[in-house]
Design a binder for these strands. Structure first.
Length: 827
RNA sequence: GCCGGAGUGGCGGAAUAGGCAGACGCACCGGACUUAAAAUCCGGCGAGCCGAAAGGUUCGUACCGGUUCGACCCCGGUCUCCGGCACCA
C-alpha cells in the first residue's frame, strides 16, 4: 500500500485559499445569536511578524475557532496601529512617504497572518492612519474639548540643538540624542493635554470590577494612579503677603517641621527672591537644573541639592520660624509644588537635613528602646506616639493624622485632600505621521475646534522630511493657513499631531461597525458586541494603553456613545518569547524568524509548538528540538488517521452494535476524557499546553489500541478519529481540515460543532485506592467506586492490607476519602 | 528603596478543590524493523541505599519552622531570580 505523506506546504496553501475564497471568517451582525468578542492587541505594521506576534495571535485564534465550534457568533477582527515614528524615520532616511511605507508593510503582514492560518474578519479591518479612521479620532478629541477635558498649556519638550528638532522621550537615552549623541536640552512649547486626572478616582474605583483581569495588572494600574490621602496646610512666610500651601500625607508630624522646600519652578520663588542677594544664586541653581534630563532629575539616586533663599516660614502649630529652601527633590507637578520638611520622619528630608546641617526634631516616639531619638541614624517613618506636639502629645500617630487634619480645618489653615500620582495626558507630538489635532487658532476668537462636518482634517502631502524643525507639518504650503470656524477671518491650524496612544484607545469600538461613515459606530452594533469578552496582548501595555482605553471608554460612555464604561471583561497578558533565556533581539542575535519556521515545518507546527511549550501567560523558551517534537507529533497524527481510515473506512460502522471489550472501553474512555479535558482547558482555563498534552495522550491511546485490540471495533475507531480531528482543529487547522476531508466529510471544519462527551463513559466501576500510613503511601487496592468512608475501610480490611500495615502497632484513627484513599494514623 | 510574581527531574512543563509529586513533550538509554543508517513502532528514564533479579527501602517540589490524619498547595520567616514604580511629600 502506498503510504501518503504529510505535505504541510500543499495542505496549508490549499486550505488558506479556500478559507479566503469562501469568506468563511466573516462575522455577521446577527443580534439574535449569542456573541463573543475576542480581541488581540493590534500590531504596529513594522512589516515583519516576530515570534511574540505569532504567540499572541495563535492564542487568540485557537480560542476563536473553539468558540465558533461551540456555537458563538465570534467577533475576531484585526487592524493596524499604523501611525508612529518608524514610518517617519523611513521617510527621512529613504525618502519614502510614510503612507506608502506603511501600506507596503500592512500588505506584507497581512500575507504573513494568512500564512499562519488566522481567522480574522478582514471586512472589519481598520488602519489608524486612514482618514476614515482618524476622522473619528479627531471627532473624539473635539468632544473632549467641548466637555472641557482638553486644554493647552506651556510645557518643556526635549530639544536636540544639533538635529534642531523635538525628540520624543523614547528618543532620548541617558540624556543624549539617540541619533547624534548631543546632550538634549529643553524648549517650552504650548501643548495639548487631556484631563485624565478628572477620571482618576473612577479609573481607580472601577478596577475592583475587573474580575477577569490579572491581579498584577490591576495592581500596576492602582500604583500608577497612585492615590494618596492627606492634608493641605498654609504656612505664613515672614515679610510676604501670600500663604505657602503644602500637601502632606503625614499631618501628624506637623510639629516636627524644621524647614520648607519649594520646587525650583514654584511661582513664589521669583517673587521671594527678586531684588534680594539671593536672586543671582537662584538663577544659577535653575540654570544648572536645566541641564539635567527628566530621567536624571527624577531619579532617586541623584544627590539632593538645595539652596536657602533667605526667607523664613512660620510653623502654624508651634509658631516656630523655619528656613525656606528650593531643592531638586521637590517636584512642581505633584501636590502643591512645595513641602513641609520633617527630617525626623521622612527619609528624603532626613538626608537633606544631614547634608545641610538642619535641625532634626522628633515628634513621633517609636516606643523602641533600640532607637535613640536624640541621635537618629535614619528617619523613623512608622507609627508611634506623638511627642513634642503640644496638646496632641500621647496620641497614637495614626489617630493624629485625623486629629491634626481636623484641627487645621477648624482653624481655617488647611483641609483634608486627596492627591493622585497620575498626571494629565500630554498628547501633542511635534511629528508628521499622526492624527492632526483638529484645532484652529484665530487672533480674535482664540482656539476653536474644526467644524465636525469638515472632518477629517487631512494630513497634507506637500511636506518635507528633513528631520529638522518643530514639525514637518510647518513645511506644508497648504495646511497651516485656514479660516476661523467662528468669525471666518484668517486663522492657523494646530501643527502638532496626536500621541498614537489616542488612536489605539478606541479601535475596539470601531470594529463593531468599521465601515460606518455616518457616525463613529452605530449604537446598536456597539450594544451587541461590547464589551470585549477577552482581550489578549503583551503585559508591556498593562499601564498606558489599557488605562487610556479605559479612560476613553468611560468618556464615550459619559457622553452617551459607548454602551459600556469598561471596555475589556477579561484580559490575558501573554508572556514573552525567549531564546537562550533572553528576549529575542537583533543585538543578541537570537532571533528566530517565524517565516523560516513556517517554511521548514509549516504553520500548524509553529502554532502547536508555541502553544504547547508553556502556558500563555508565562514566558516561553524557544527550543528548536521542541519544534521538531511538535512536527513529529503532527506526522504521528497524520499516520494514525490515514492508516486507520484505510483500514476501517468511515461510512458504515456503528459503535453501539457489538459488546465492548476492555480495550474498547479504554479507548472510549480516552476519547471522552480528551474531549472533556480539551474543551475545559481551552474554554475555562485558557491552558493550551495541557489541552495539547491531553490530545497527545489520546493519540497514544489510539496507537495502543491498534496494537492491543484483537478485533478492533470499527465504529469506535471511526468516532475516535472524528473527535481527534475536531479537538485538534483549533490548534492545527490546516492539517485537520485535510484529515477531515480525507475521512469523508463534505463540510469544512469552520462550520463543524465541538464534539460531545459522555460523563458515563468516564466513570469506571473499580477505582484504585491508595492506602497511606501516617500520610505516606504504603499500598494500593481496587475498590468499587462510590464507596463511603466506612465501606472503604472495610474493603481495605477485606483485602488484608490493613492487617499487613498495622501488624503489631496500635491504630489511633483511620481517615478515608471516598474514591481516593485510606490513611491509617498510628499511635 | 517600595510594591508584586515566581522558584518542581538533565530541560520545557503537569498536578484545576489540601489527598499517589513529576502527566505530556524534549534530551538520553535499550529493543524491534533494516545489509546499514535515518525514519518509524515498542519500552525505560528524580536521587540514594539493599538486592543477581523480582522487588524493597529512605530521601525528594529553593531554605528554616508551623498548621493538618495528610502540604508543591495554607501560615510565619529567610534566600535567589524576574517584573512594575522609582525623590509622588
Amino acid at each position: 500500500m502506498e503510504q501518503s505523506k504529510y505535505d504541510f506546504k500543499k495542505i496549508e496553501e490549499k486550505w488558506q485559499a479556500r478559507w479566503r475564497d469562501e469568506g468563511l471568517f466573516g462575522t455577521p451582525d446577527d443580534f439574535s445569536r449569542e456573541k463573543y468578542y475576542l480581541l488581540e492587541m493590534f500590531p504596529y505594521p513594522s512589516g515583519k511578524l516576530h515570534m511574540g506576534h505569532v504567540r499572541n495571535y495563535s492564542i487568540g485564534d485557537v480560542a476563536t475557532r473553539f468558540l465558533k465550534m461551540k456555537g458563538y457568533n465570534v467577533l475576531h477582527p484585526m487592524g493596524w496601529d499604523a501611525f508612529g515614528l518608524p514610518a517617519e524615520n523611513a521617510a527621512i532616511q529613504n525618502g519614502v512617504h510614510p503612507y506608502s511605507w506603511t501600506k507596503d508593510n500592512i500588505t506584507a503582514m497581512h500575507r504573513q497572518f494568512e500564512r499562519l492560518g488566522l481567522t480574522y474578519d478582514w471586512n472589519r479591518e481598520v488602519a489608524t492612519c486612514n482618514p476614515d479612521y482618524y476622522r473619528w479620532t479627531q471627532w473624539i478629541f473635539i468632544q473632549f474639548y467641548k466637555n472641557g477635558l482638553a486644554y493647552k498649556k506651556k510645557n518643556p519638550v526635549n530639544w536636540c540643538p544639533s538635529c534642531e528638532t523635538v525628540l520624543a522621550n523614547e528618543q532620548v537615552s541617558g540624556g543624549v540624542c539617540e541619533r547624534c549623541g548631543t546632550p538634549v536640552g529643553k524648549r517650552d512649547l504650548e501643548q495639548w493635554y487631556l484631563k485624565i486626572t478628572d477620571y482618576a478616582q473612577r479609573l481607580l474605583d472601577d478596577i475592583d470590577r475587573l474580575d477577569g483581569w490579572p491581579d498584577k495588572v490591576k495592581l500596576m494600574q492602582r500604583n500608577w494612579i497612585g492615590r494618596s490621602t492627606g492634608a493641605e496646610a498654609d504656612f505664613a512666610i515672614k515679610g510676604f503677603d501670600k500663604k505657602l500651601r503644602i500637601f502632606t500625607t503625614r499631618p501628624d508630624t506637623l510639629f516636627g517641621v524644621t524647614y520648607m522646600v519649594l520646587a525650583p519652578e514654584h511661582p513664589y520663588v521669583k517673587e521671594l527672591t527678586d531684588g534680594t542677594e539671593y536672586e543671582g544664586k537662584v538663577a544659577d541653581f535653575l540654570h544648572n537644573l536645566q541641564y539635567l534630563s527628566d530621567i536624571d532629575r527624577s531619579s532617586a539616586t541623584i544627590e539632593k541639592e538645595g539652596l536657602f533663599i533667605g526667607r523664613f516660614a512660620v510653623n502654624p502649630m508651634n509658631g516656630r520660624d523655619v528656613p525656606v529652601y528650593i531643592a531638586n527633590y521637590v517636584l512642581m507637578d505633584y501636590g502643591t509644588g512645595a513641602i513641609m520638611a520633617v527630617p525626623a520622619h521622612d527619609t528624603r528630608d532626613f538626608e537633606f537635613a544631614v547634608k545641610y546641617g538642619l535641625d532634626i526634631v522628633p515628634v513621633i516616639d517609636p516606643n523602641d528602646p533600640d532607637i535613640d531619638l536624640d541621635d537618629l541614624k535614619e528617619a523613623f517613618v512608622a507609627e508611634g506616639t506623638m511627642i513634642n506636639s503640644g496638646d496632641f502629645d500621647g496620641m497614637n500617630s495614626r489617630d493624629g493624622v485625623d486629629a491634626v487634619s481636623a484641627y487645621l480645618e477648624e482653624k481655617g489653615i488647611g483641609e483634608r485632600t486627596v492627591n493622585f500620582r497620575l498626571r494629565d495626558w500630554l498628547i501633542s507630538r511635534q511629528r508628521y505621521w499622526g492624527t492632526p489635532i483638529p484645532m484652529i487658532y484665530c487672533e480674535k476668537c482664540g482656539w476653536t475646534p474644526e467644524k465636525e462636518e469638515n472632518l477629517p482634517v487631512l494630513l497634507p502631502t506637500d511636506v518635507e522630511f528633513t528631520g529638522k524643525g518643530e514639525s514637518p507639518l510647518t513645511t506644508s504650503k497648504t495646511f497651516r493657513e485656514t479660516s476661523c470656524p467662528v468669525c471666518g477671518g484668517s486663522a492657523e491650524r494646530e501643527i502638532d499631531t496626536m500621541d498614537t496612544f489616542l488612536d489605539s484607545s478606541w479601535y475596539f469600538l470601531r470594529y463593531t461597525d468599521a465601515r460606518n461613515d455616518e457616525e463613529i459606530f452605530s449604537p446598536e452594533n456597539a450594544r451587541y458586541w461590547m464589551p470585549v469578552d477577552q482581550y489578549i496582548g503583551g503585559v508591556e501595555h498593562a499601564i498606558l494603553h489599557l488605562l487610556y482605553a479605559r479612560f476613553f471608554t468611560k468618556f464615550l460612555y459619559d457622553i452617551g456613545r459607548s454602551p459600556v464604561d469598561e471596555p475589556f471583561s477579561r484580559l490575558l497578558t501573554q508572556g514573552m518569547v525567549l531564546k537562550d533565556g533572553a528576549k529575542m533581539s537583533k543585538s543578541l542575535g537570537n532571533v528566530v524568524s517565524p517565516e523560516e519556521i513556517i517554511d521548514k515545518y509549516g504553520a500548524d507546527t509553529a502554532r502547536l509548538f508555541i502553544l504547547f511549550a508553556s502556558p500563555p501567560e508565562k514566558e516561553l523558551e524557544w527550543s528548536d528540538r521542541g519544534v521538531e517534537g511538535s512536527y513529529r507529533f503532527l506526522n504521528r497524527v497524520w499516520r494514525i488517521v490515514t492508516e486507520l481510515n484505510e483500514e476501517f473506512g468511515y461510512a458504515d460502522a456503528d459503535a453501539s452494535g457489538a459488546a465492548l471489550t476492555p480495550e474498547d472501553r479504554e479507548l472510549d474512555r480516552a476519547r471522552n476524557y480528551a474531549v472533556k479535558k480539551v474543551g475545559n482547558d481551552i474554554g475555562e482555563r485558557f491552558n493550551f499546553n495541557t489541552a495539547i498534552s491531553a490530545i497527545m495522550e489520546f493519540v497514544n491511546a489510539l496507537y495502543r489500541y491498534r496494537e492491543a485490540a484483537a478485533s478492533p471495533n470499527a465504529g469506535l475507531v471511526r468516532d475516535s478519529v472524528r473527535d481527534l480531528i475536531l479537538i485538534l482543529s483549533p490548534f492545527t487547522p490546516h492539517l485537520c481540515e485535510e484529515l477531515w476531508d480525507i475521512t469523508g466529510h463534505e463540510e469544512t471544519l469552520c462550520t463543524a460543532p465541538w464534539p460531545e462527551y459522555e460523563e458515563a463513559a468516564l466513570a469506571s466501576d473499580e477505582i484504585e485506592i491508595v492506602v497511606q500510613v501516617n500520610g505516606k503511601v504504603k499500598g494500593k487496592f481496587n475498590a468499587d467506586s462510590g464507596l463511603d468512608a466506612a465501606g472503604l475501610v472495610a474493603a481495605a480490611a477485606d483485602c488484608g492490607l490493613l492487617d499487613r500495615l498495622t501488624a503489631g502497632k496500635e491504630v489511633a484513627k483511620t481517615v478515608a476519602i471516598p474514591d481516593r484513599l485510606v490513611n491509617i494514623v498510628l499511635k
